[in-house]
């Protein structure tokens, strides 16, 4: 495992921890899109079907369990926790799941490396992860008041994707036959979705003003 991959995983882990910190200690999920969180839970549930059949490493297994456990517990908190759910911006978080899920499923059935159940599910999870942030980005744009933790959460998620691209470039030059068009293209699309957010994030950081996305 190279440094980019490891840093990417750690950034991903940090994003989840920031979100759990916000929800667990502040008891608030204001500005967080439940739709995006539900899509991530679906992403991990469909991607990690190999959890109990293919052993890669202890690190790999532990991380999979962490991402599965954290994504489902975040969804649980926002939907059912009696204090946390009160802060959920339900009226603003209106993105429809099937609008993203159905095209991804269709695309995975058409474009995949191997037409087997597990491989189609794996591919579906890649496509869905690429666009799962959209409800969150829409909500950020609607929320006039983005708090620090929410801003950092989205920034860390974007940084994780950018580091994965560096990881793929590194692996392409150091490992024989390392070519994965589906992973790369969906990963690139996913990272590009953050470009706009990154721009305003760095602007607010540079000028030391509160993060706000233009409508």
């Amino acid at each position: 495992m190279n440094i980019f991959r490891f840093a990417g995983d750690m950034t991903h882990l940090a994003s989840v921890l920031v979100l759990l910190l916000k929800i667990h200690t502040i008891k608030s999920c204001a500005g967080i899109s439940l739709k995006t969180q539900e899509l991530y839970a679906l992403v991990f549930a469909t991607r990690y079907l190999d959890l109990f059949t293919d052993y890669i490493s202890l690190y790999n297994t532990l991380m999979k369990l962490i991402f599965l456990g954290s994504s489902f517990s975040i969804v649980w908190y926002i939907r059912y926790h009696k204090i946390v759910r009160r802060s959920y911006d339900k009226d603003q978080d209106t993105f429809r799941h099937y609008f993203l899920v159905l095209p991804c499923l269709l695309l995975a059935l058409l474009i995949n490396e191997k037409f087997t159940f597990r491989e189609v599910m794996w591919t579906f999870s890649l496509y869905l992860e690429a666009v799962a942030i959209l409800p969150q980005l829409v909500l950020l744009q609607r929320t006039r008041n983005i708090d620090n933790l929410t801003g950092q959460y989205v920034f860390l998620l974007g940084a994780y994707r950018a580091l994965y691209i560096l990881n793929w470039i590194y692996r392409y030059f150091t490992e024989p036959h390392y070519v994965h068009w589906i992973t790369w293209i969906s990963g690139l699309v996913q990272t590009l979705l953050y470009a706009d957010f990154f721009y305003y994030y760095f602007q607010s950081w540079k000028n030391n003003v509160k993060l706000e996305l233009p409508a």
């Binding site: 991903h12 890669i56 790999n60 490396e113 491989e119 490992e175 036959h177 070519v179």
Partner: peptide
């Protein structure tokens, strides 16, 4: 194989 090396990522 290609599939296995792809699935070692998270």
């Amino acid at each position: 194989s290609a599939i296995v090396s792809q699935h070692d990522e998270l």
